[in-house]
């Protein structure tokens, strides 16, 4: 835990500082990871208020680009245990409050 931030300035600072995509866990190859990450960022920014649409967009785009059976979970708080094909998992945070988990498993 860190600074006990109070006041709007702190809040804004936090939002600004914590807006970058932060990859928590991935085993994708470099190229795929960059692409998936950018896609997640795009989708989350496009549907900032609707996680479902964002997840749908990510899933559909990933299906097109890397073959079918992709799964996407977006949320502010959840727990999961998944089985995925190796080299096909991306678990990242974005925008300071969102967690995105993208994986492939057919």
């Amino acid at each position: 835990m860190a600074d006990t931030g109070e006041g709007k300035k702190e809040e804004a600072d936090y939002k600004r500082l914590h807006s970058f995509p932060l990859i928590r866990h991935t085993d994708m190859p470099e190229e795929m990871r960059v692409e998936a990450m950018e896609l997640c960022v795009t989708a989350c920014e496009k549907y900032a208020t609707n996680n479902e649409s964002a997840a749908k967009m990510i899933k559909e785009t990933m299906d097109k680009k890397f073959g079918s059976s992709w799964h996407v979970v977006i949320g502010e708080g959840f727990g999961f245990e998944i089985t995925h094909e190796v080299k096909n998992l991306l678990y990242m945070f974005f925008g300071g409050s969102l967690a995105v988990c993208v994986w492939k498993c057919s």
């Binding site: 866990h25 085993d27 708080g77 959840f78 089985t83 995925h84 190796v86 998992l89």
Partner: peptide
């Protein structure tokens, strides 16, 4: 395949 699990909250 591999399994991966995590919990996320704010």
């Amino acid at each position: 395949r591999a399994t991966f699990s995590a919990t996320v909250n704010q």
